[in-house]
């Protein structure tokens, strides 16, 4: 067998594709390979665990939308038109699905790969750069968030909970939401050192889920609490998606979208920096 042959020249040429270009020290233009790895790993994992991740919001929809919903009347869409309670919480749970999917992969799974699986050690001993790894992993997490959002969307559309045609845009909006959470999730995870610290992520997620106007309008809170909640990403996501599924559009939605763009950029920046510090110092 020949270990050194002509093919190596082309191999090196590919590996050096971005040689000398801007950011060549952190980016070699191959984040897609991280997704490939994700698919290989998924193939031989317990895919049921991944596939079933979207059921939790469905249970919430059933228990609250239909269960408690029986005891709740007078829900309106914000413009005064009456809607069912299930129609009110469905978009919130859609945003939550996107968030959950993105967060599962970008926090616990990343944490595992970082500290036990040594996956990034392997990646970064090749010609991959840290931005390749960050972008690849975040995209992978985002795909999971998107998959959950689509799954949930299929369920709620089937139940007639999406009254407006604008609801179609809820899917791209969910991509944005998932991307933002994946990016920040991985950024934060890269700074955490042990399981106990990781648990605190859950401790932030739960209140965000419970208080972001998921189950009732913010108006029941005093004003300073409302301000605080409006600064939280899930509230931004829920408002964006609820506006779309109920067909009530306004300029504030642009603000919500920009909020997520900022999350994406910030998360990528910190993740790349931290990966460099952890694996290349």
């Amino acid at each position: 067998m020949s270990l050194i042959n002509a093919a190596v020249d082309s191999a090196i040429a590919i590996a050096e594709k971005r040689k000398g270009k801007l950011g060549a020290g952190v980016y070699s233009g191959r984040p897609n390979v991280v997704l490939e790895r994700g698919f290989y790993a998924l193939k031989s994992s317990t895919w049921m665990v991944v596939a079933s991740g979207f059921v939790e919001p469905v249970f919430y929809l059933l228990a609250f939308g239909y269960g408690i919903g029986q005891f709740i009347s007078g829900t309106t869409d914000g413009n005064g038109s009456p809607i069912t309670y299930a129609q009110f919480i469905a978009p919130a749970l859609l945003a939550t699905s996107a968030m959950n999917g993105a967060i599962y992969d970008s926090t616990w799974n990343v944490f595992f790969k970082m500290h036990f699986g040594k996956v990034y050690n392997g990646m970064l001993s090749t010609s991959m750069g840290t931005l390749d790894v960050a972008l690849g992993e975040i995209s992978w997490a985002l795909l999971r968030g998107l998959a959950y959002a689509i799954g949930f969307m299929a369920v709620v559309t089937g139940m007639g909970l999406i009254p407006s045609i604008w609801g179609l845009l809820a899917i791209p909006a969910a991509v944005l939401v998932a991307f933002g959470f994946a990016s920040v999730g991985m950024g934060v995870t890269s700074y955490l050192k042990n399981h106990q610290q990781m648990q605190w992520i859950q401790f932030v997620m739960l209140p965000m889920f419970l208080f972001s106007g998921t189950f009732y309008p913010l108006s029941i809170y005093p004003e300073f609490i409302q301000w605080f909640i409006q600064a939280m990403p899930l509230w931004q996501g829920i408002s964006l998606i609820r506006g779309l599924t109920l067909g009530i559009l306004d300029w504030a939605m642009l603000g919500h979208a920009l909020y997520f763009v900022a999350m994406i950029i910030g998360g990528l920046f910190f993740t790349t920096r931290r990966l460099t510090a952890l694996f290349l110092r």
Partner: peptide, 30 residues
């Protein structure tokens, strides 16, 4: 510390959100 924080934190959150928040919706409806 985590055990106590989670032991007290989780329930308080559910209480506030579901107990008081959703509770007020139920009360105002029925």
């Amino acid at each position: 510390l985590s055990i106590i924080a989670f032991g007290l934190g989780n329930p308080s959150l559910y209480l506030l959100s579901i107990g008081i928040g959703v509770g007020s919706l139920v009360d105002s409806s029925l």
